[in-house]
Design a protein around this nucleic acid. Sequence first.
DNA 1: TGATTATAATGTACAACGTACAGAGAAAAG
DNA 2: CTTTTCTCTGTACGTTGTACATTATAATCA
Lengths: 250, 250
Amino acid sequence: MPSATAETPKPTLLELLWRAAPDGARGPRKGLTVDAVVDAAIEIADAEGLEAVTMRRVAQSLGKATMTLYTYVPGKTELIVLMLDALYGRMDFEDTAGRPWRERLSALARDDYRMYRAHAWAAAASQTRPPLGPGQSTKYEHELRALDGLGLSDVEMDDALAYLLGFVRTAAADAAGADAEREASAMSDQEWWEANGPLLARVLDTERFPTAVRVGQAAGEAHGSAFDPAHAFEFGLARTLDGLAVIIER
Amino acid sequence: MPSATAETPKPTLLELLWRAAPDGARGPRKGLTVDAVVDAAIEIADAEGLEAVTMRRVAQSLGKATMTLYTYVPGKTELIVLMLDALYGRMDFEDTAGRPWRERLSALARDDYRMYRAHAWAAAASQTRPPLGPGQSTKYEHELRALDGLGLSDVEMDDALAYLLGFVRTAAADAAGADAEREASAMSDQEWWEANGPLLARVLDTERFPTAVRVGQAAGEAHGSAFDPAHAFEFGLARTLDGLAVIIER
DNA sequence: TGATTATAATGTACAACGTACAGAGAAAAG
DNA sequence: CTTTTCTCTGTACGTTGTACATTATAATCA
């Protein structure tokens, strides 16, 4: 009678993040690593967007069969978490030790924003409370240090950081969205107005929507287009820091 | 020789949003309306999440064949836009005329947050600059009126509103994400710690991550769990209004 | 050394998705 | 009555994530 089929203790997500899975000693040599899979996926996402990251595509870029990936990663969900943690771990942060708090937090925000802009898929994929992988932990530690010693309680520090990073993530996602939309439409602003202007003029009458028409027009003219992500980021960052100032300089 | 195949001028998204498509006079009677399709889709999304909204599922709930939907809606992308605009159009806003600006903006944020929480799928699906459908236009008009007469320029009004709503959307998406995660894991905090505690203790050493460990612990204990969406919303709203105060009370 | 056993790698297969397309039938227009 | 146009539908295609069985490989144990 053959012994009961051995239960392969499949690694948890956390073990995977920390690369803490004991690599099996028995079978054939591994032809890949988790890092290789993650890197390949990031490369594809950077070049062609997250929707181009399919298991087949990643495997192909590694010269392996699709199902081989599942030796290294439990599924696509986990792969994306790993991709994000890798990004966090590779960020380089501006050194702002000793500078005033406003500059420190501003640098934090800009570091984050730069990372998101360099990997357009990341803002949409990331969550507010990512799992505590090594990359996220390193990032979190660095960010908290910028907030330490400002007179905030520990809980306030966490609140403030989550608030600041939430703003940056949204701003980056909006910027990426605006890019994608512009690319997808392949329609100049002029063409768009020729196609949609008449209807809008008929339907957005100044009787029902006086303020919207006035403000929308002003905003559109000021930015030269419907939405200016860079301006939104600068405006928002200033407001966010002003908002935090109230509890920091209290 | 048969005449050239007639070109059905398929309606643009804007025409669809404003229900401005001329309904064809020729063929059989329509068995549905755009609204019926949109409502059915919203009902499914509310009950089972956006990922349950498939063309087959929506059609089935209307007692029609799948492809019938494409008579009313160009595709799934457009359907989701229509769903969101419908939500915006049905919001009811707290009347805050004459009240101080901070209460007015706070009510705006809470109205928005309430809508997102009632339709958990909406925060993730919505964009910063939604197409100018009737719902979005009504909402935008109402919101701008709350910002009018505060001494802001038109461009600043638009900036401030986008900033405020961006915060609310993110907070709502985070809250929905936290709900979903809790539901999906089906793991009590205690079980989670039993499974992952040992690894975390080994790997999150206080040498490398002193601040992160300290603050993370404090935050976790304060909220009784890793993340408290309601608290994050209140904290963030206060900060956001404080930040806007700087340009409003200038 | 030879038998055993855990593991890596892979091919096949399946269910689910959005939607292109062609055809059948209905109603208005000529 | 004929023609035209439109609604509705069934079938089918390409794509997705991944379950599963199989084969090859290497370390372990007798």
